[in-house]
Computed example of a mutant assay.
Amino acid sequence: MPVRDDQDSLKKTPLHGLHVSLGGKMVPFAGYDMPVQYPAGVLKEHLQTRSAAGLFDVSHMGQLALRPKSGKVEDAARALERLVPQDIVAIAPGRQRYAQFTNEDGGILDDLMVANFGDHLFLVVNAACKDEDEAHLRANLSDDCVIEQLSDRALIALQGPKAESALAKLCAEAPSMTFMDAGPHKVAGLACFVSRSGYTGEDGFEISVPAADAERLAKALLENPNVMPIGLGARDSLRLEAGLCLYGHDIDTATTPVEAALEWSVQKSRRSGGARAGGFPGAEKILAHFDHGASRRRVGLLAQGRAPVREGALLFADAAAGEPIGKVTSGGFGPSLNAPVAMGYVPTALSALDTKIFAEVRGQRLPLTIAAMPFVKNTYKR
């Protein structure tokens, strides 16, 4: 984590006071003062989320509404398809989809979630990119949509195998929702937007709540003995075990969705030969990668020893000689596996499972094995 800035220069989420009262260790993150951990520590918080339920403050993320000027949500969906390679038109009311904003070179400007709320689209974007994302939307979609920044809302994630039972006490519809269902629901009597999704690989929910009510809702969830507050440290180790990309690390403006092993997120209708193929920034390069392959690929990496292989470590094909073939983009210790895990980019020719490569750590080349992701089986409710 970065060295602490002047606290007064950092933004605070609506749950900042609660984090401090719970003993959160606060650090700067994406311009916000955020809890990296609580007194229980990262390891216990991680395992708590895998075994029971964890509560995360993700209010630093950007929340946006795209309201079609025509009154038809399909028109907002078609407009958004000019900026992303996903099939937005096919998102049914009450559902959401993972997407990426791409640039003219096929790189990823940001990744985001898009939900169809029936009369408009609801978007959640990354904290570090939210201002640029909003400007991108306004510059390209203002003729078709009213773009509304929902800055008066907080965002809470409830994740883990006991998330459903905890939320069901406050939201009667929660048990009937399945993975990627999304829409307005009452939670503890509050007007919320709820999606069955998350960033941990576990079953769970993300709850958009009016900022003024966020602390009351968080406290109501934390009253459940199965729910524990979780900080950024465990959020990162959980998403790494789940094989999920972190923007600015595993994906960026120089990485295409195919290089990032995100082909699954681009529906056939937007690919070569599809009904609405292309028409998004960087389509020529991205579709060429679909048709002919890319020269490099994001892969999972397992170390043979106990030493974590961190972000930035160079990767080599040989134990002693040769030039680097790639680098690690995320790495750390996986508490669920009790072993180091990492992700990085290697030449596609060396990306097959069980391929042996090496990472340079403190002047030594440590053996790694290319492994399937997720490292921990996901538990989404399908």
Rank of each mutant, 00 (worst) to 15 (best):
M1N: 08
Q7K: 15
T13P: 01
G23I: 10
F29Q: 07
G31S: 05
D33H: 00
V36D: 10
Q37R: 14
G41C: 11
K44D: 13
K44H: 14
Q48M: 12
R50L: 12
A52L: 08
L55D: 02
F56V: 13
S59I: 00
H60V: 01
M61P: 02
M61S: 06
A65L: 13
R67A: 10
P68L: 14
K72D: 13
E74A: 13
A79P: 12
I91W: 06
R97N: 09
N103L: 04
E104Q: 14
D111N: 11
M113T: 13
V114L: 02
A115D: 07
L121K: 05
A127M: 14
C129S: 13
A135N: 14
H136S: 08
H136E: 13
D144H: 09
I147S: 02
L150H: 04
R153F: 10
A154N: 00
P161V: 02
A163P: 01
A163K: 06
T178D: 14
D181C: 11
A182M: 13
P184N: 07
A188I: 02
G189K: 05
G189M: 08
F193T: 08
V194N: 03
G201R: 04
G204E: 15
P210C: 00
A214R: 00
L217K: 01
A218K: 00
P225I: 06
V227Q: 05
M228F: 12
P229K: 06
P229F: 09
A234I: 07
A234D: 11
R235N: 10
Y247C: 05
G248T: 09
G248F: 08
T253D: 11
A254P: 04
V258F: 14
E263R: 13
V266H: 00
V266M: 11
V266W: 06
V266T: 11
R271C: 11
R271A: 08
S272A: 14
G279A: 02
P281G: 04
G282R: 10
R298N: 05
V299L: 09
Q304H: 12
G305H: 02
G305D: 07
A307G: 04
P308K: 06
G322S: 09
P324H: 05
I325A: 10
N338S: 13
N338A: 14
N338R: 15
P340K: 06
V341W: 01
M343D: 11
V346N: 05
L350V: 01
L350Y: 01
S351E: 02
L353V: 04
L353C: 02
I357E: 03
F358N: 12
T369A: 12
I370V: 15
P374N: 07
F375M: 04
R382M: 07
